[in-house]
Design a protein around this nucleic acid. Structure first.
Ligand code: MN
Ligand code: MN
Ligand code: MN
Ligand code: MN
Lengths: 220, 220
DNA sequence: AATAATTTTTAGATTTACCTAAAAATAAAA
DNA sequence: TTTTATTTTTAGGTAAATCTAAAAATTATT
């Protein structure tokens, strides 16, 4: 059984490993909002417990056991987010912090019943896939909106930024999950993108376009 | 903001204070499954923070602030128990341990929305009253089944023992909340009680009868 | 009132998760 | 290939919550 803190480390290592196989001490420290020295301490402990493989100065990788533990926490986090949005009427920008706490509740039974209660959802309110009880899930294969060309179209199916500020902004622009969009123009000056959504033409900044994920996109 | 541990101390002191106004160090230690020396340490801290009044060797009493904090935790615990039983189909004997964890999730918004989602329940699966968001609740005024006389009748509206073993036993006997019962006889030999429930005559031990709470009882 | 039993507190340690400052290793630049 | 910069680790320490053993206070019993 892992502590609250160990679970947070595992989850963060897991997410960082999605970007780079070998995860650096400093990246973990940044995400954990702690100091590199503390991370080294914890890494040693996680290695002792068999959750990570660790070579001094070479960063860490999750073991099978570590990855499973991490995926289990991700599963809980996302299921709770679905619960908060679908059952308790939270907005998608309000759920992350509460889910950060709920994900640590230890009861296999609880999470399986919750999954059932929610109708075995496949993705969370931000479009992220929810692992099943065996840890399996389809890896999303989205294109960033910023990478689309003029004339391309598709459906908003995810976001790669979960901050409340960003999500509220999208909401205001009407850019929510499931919405159909089309690229009309890309501004030379600042890289902002003109898109068509719900029959309206709007302009979004490059920064915003970077974090919107599109699927099912018909290239021009 | 209180820590997980502080919250548990406050809740336990609150429950003990329902029995005796001045709560002893040893009773707290027993309930917390810790040592008296640890309790003394924590009591000092809680006193510093203004949650309890404390005089050396004289035990503790909750301050207004401490009582409010404790009631808030009790409210969360009981609401989560209702959720687990009514929405996730847990049995009444399976919910306590999970609720012990869930009660520490810190989000006022969450618990108010949960309350609403559940339809503002007035009591939990064990018949215990649920404080409203202002901490107000009707204090139950039940009679222990053991105190009834032959011929008395009433409705099972609570239990004063929450162990899984006890609750499972009641379930098997058909002695669940809302059931109508009548006292038919009390055995001289062992103090066991003959009761009528759902047209069936059953015998329950003195120990069981002590922990069943009856309301609305028509005396003979 | 004196003695014994119980309860409670202090003293001193331990464990977990942190921290700062300095040393060591690795990577990048000159 | 040195030198410099960055990353990572070690060393030593702190705060929270716990523990054991022993001392002190309170309560109960003779
Ligand atoms: Mn989230
Ligand atoms: Mn999410
Ligand atoms: Mn309970
Ligand atoms: Mn209960």
């Amino acid at each position: 059984m892992q502590s609250f803190t160990e679970e947070n480390y595992l989850k963060i290592i897991y997410h960082l490993a999605e970007l780079t196989n070998n995860v650096q001490t400093n990246s973990i420290a940044e995400k954990m909002q702690t100091k590199p020295a503390s991370v080294t301490d914890m890494i040693k402990k996680l290695a002792d417990k068999g959750f990570v493989d660790y070579i001094k100065y070479q960063g860490v990788t999750l073991t099978e056991k570590g990855r499973n533990a991490a995926i289990d926490i991700v599963r809980k986090h996302r299921l709770w987010e679905v619960f908060l949005v679908n059952k308790l009427n939270f907005k998608w920008d309000e759920v992350h912090d509460v889910a950060e706490e709920l994900e640590h509740i230890k009861s296999v039974d609880l999470i399986e019943r919750l999954d059932e209660f929610l109708g075995f959802p496949k993705s969370d309110p931000h479009g992220d896939p929810i692992p099943d009880k065996n840890g399996r899930f389809a890896k999303n294969h989205f294109t960033k909106l910023i990478e689309l060309k003029i004339g391309d179209s598709g459906t908003i199916t995810g976001v790669s930024q979960h901050s409340s500020a960003f999500l509220k902004h999208l909401e205001k622009l009407g850019l929510t999950l499931g919405k159909q969009i089309q690229i009309n123009d890309v501004t030379d000056f600042d890289g902002s993108v003109e898109i068509l959504v719900a029959d309206k033409q709007i302009n979004i900044s490059r920064e915003v376009a970077k974090h919107i994920l599109i699927s099912n996109n018909g290239k021009n």
